[in-house]
């Protein structure tokens, strides 16, 4: 399974106010991290419909990273807290069905956590590399 040259494709859904800003800060600070991630900016982690995550897997994305403000920091007061419940349930559910836990990961990254953003990307990329390309769930015609 382990292909040394496997470069996974990761989608990251980031909230505009903290995590996207954290990613910006990683950039401003020139912190280098793997090129695999493609960011989709959303107003808030609360905007993320769990089905987007399932859809990403179905589309053949190797890993999904979802990130929002730390609890209490959400620009929209409670978006991340409400979303947190959905995320926790979804993650467990997908793992229950046999999807590798590494494929769908969640994090809280604040606007001042550029390094943390880079680390979390590294972690997801490395872990997904470990488990190889996505097979499950993908719709290949």
């Amino acid at each position: 399974m382990m292909d040394k040259n496997f470069e996974p494709r990761i989608v990251a859904f980031l909230c505009n106010w903290c995590s996207y800003a954290g990613a910006d800060l990683a950039g401003v600070s020139r912190i280098q991290y793997p090129t695999n991630v493609r960011i989709i900016r959303l107003p808030c982690s609360g905007r993320i419909n769990p089905l987007y995550i399932v859809k990403a897997l179905q589309n053949g994305v190797d890993g999904v990273l979802v990130s929002g403000c730390h609890p209490g920091d959400c620009h929209y007061i409670s978006g991340n807290l409400v979303a947190g419940r959905k995320f926790a349930l979804l993650k467990n559910f997908l793992v229950h069905l046999g999807i590798e836990p590494e494929r769908v990961q969640f994090s809280w990254v604040s606007a001042s956590e550029g390094p943390r953003f880079a680390q979390i990307v590294k972690k997801v990329v490395n872990e997904v590399k470990e488990i190889g390309p996505i097979e499950k769930m993908v719709k290949r015609l």
Binding site: P71, S78, L81, V82, G84, R85, K86, F87, A88, K91, N92, Q105, F106, S107, W108, R116, Q119, I120, K122, K123, V124
Partner: peptide
């Protein structure tokens, strides 16, 4: 409703720490 509410003590285990 479960998905419209939250509590401060909601578990954070689904979060990946770097």
């Amino acid at each position: 409703l479960l998905l419209a509410t939250f509590k401060p003590e909601d578990k954070q285990e689904f979060i990946s720490e770097p």
